[in-house]
Design a protein around this nucleic acid. Structure first.
Lengths: 161, 161
DNA sequence: AGTGAAACGGACCGAGCAGTCCGCTTAGAC
DNA sequence: GTCTAAGCGGACTGCTCGGTCCGTTTCACT
């Protein structure tokens, strides 16, 4: 891969991440290209459709979440692990409109399976110690993340037993 | 106003309410007109812009909420009044994507001032009896409504003292 | 039934979007 | 320095959408 191509690819991914985070998934490719300082033809050469670009951006966000989840699984106290991870997810959501609007699309990303498993385990451990209410599945609990991005303490209070 | 005009106006408002509730604010005017069984010229005759139609639909939803709020203010127990109203709001949000996506726009509707006042009073009373946590304003509390549309009990647990 | 105004609806316009294409530029191997 | 393939970007296309316009239809009053 040529050096200029590599550089432009990085710029495009960076610009797309920022644009979608700030303006949501409806931001146009022209806008992304402008912010990246390239022509929009260059964007389409790397990502054949807008959806492909979206998947790349969301995939990187999922990867970041996965690292956080693995960190939480290394923690001793299960409630601390859960609440810390939950707060981190909430903060991520608060910083990115792309995540909020793209939750549905994320479900179909390959990385998601692993993240799902990690999150399940974090929840299972916290529920085992009776610190976390047991009438909700992991999936349901993480539907509360968007709300928690504004008021994490209220939500965690509601989830604590 | 001619009878056919009145009938078509009702149909358009009804169709718009359904369309925006199901598909969000991005549903096209053509779609609304089709569901109403009229040409899209007829829609634009009554509502000069799409925004005007949106405001009409959202305004009617706000009116419904206001009735619920006044009902709650007639209730004896302040916590019951608050939690009942909060649940009703949550259910309304759950049934309408228009409300979710149009929260911002609602803020500028004339009816909103009165609803705001009523909600403030409902919250004030519940906080006075120490049933409702006092570290949040009414406005902040109602930002939790979208989350509560899925899991009202969790949110109310988090809000109860 | 006749008439005039009100209402109708679809043809039409312009803007903005995703996606394509091709002539020009440039990196980097020799 | 030369050469060539990889890379570039902007002109272009087709589509959808909000909004306008006007010839035709329908209501409702006498």
């Amino acid at each position: 891969m040529r050096a200029d191509a590599r550089r432009n690819l990085d710029r495009v991914l960076g610009a797309a991440t920022e644009c979608f985070a700030e303006g949501g998934l409806d931001v146009s490719i022209d806008e992304v290209a402008r912010r990246a300082g390239v022509g929009h033809g260059t964007v389409f050469r790397r990502f054949p459709t807008k959806e492909a670009l979206l998947d790349a951006v969301l995939g990187k966000e999922i990867d970041r979440m996965l690292l956080l989840a693995q960190g939480a699984l290394a923690e001793d106290d299960p409630w601390e692990a859960f609440s810390g991870f939950f707060r981190a997810c909430a903060e991520g959501y608060g910083h990115s409109r792309a995540l909020v609007e793209g939750t549905e699309r994320c479900r179909e990303l390959p990385q998601m399976a692993e993240l799902q498993e990690a999150a399940d385990e974090i929840v299972r451990r916290a529920q085992e110690t009776r610190a976390l209410r047991r009438d909700l599945t992991a999936e349901e609990i993480f539907e509360l993340v968007p709300a928690a991005s504004r008021f994490p303490d209220v939500i965690l209070d509601g989830l604590h037993v």
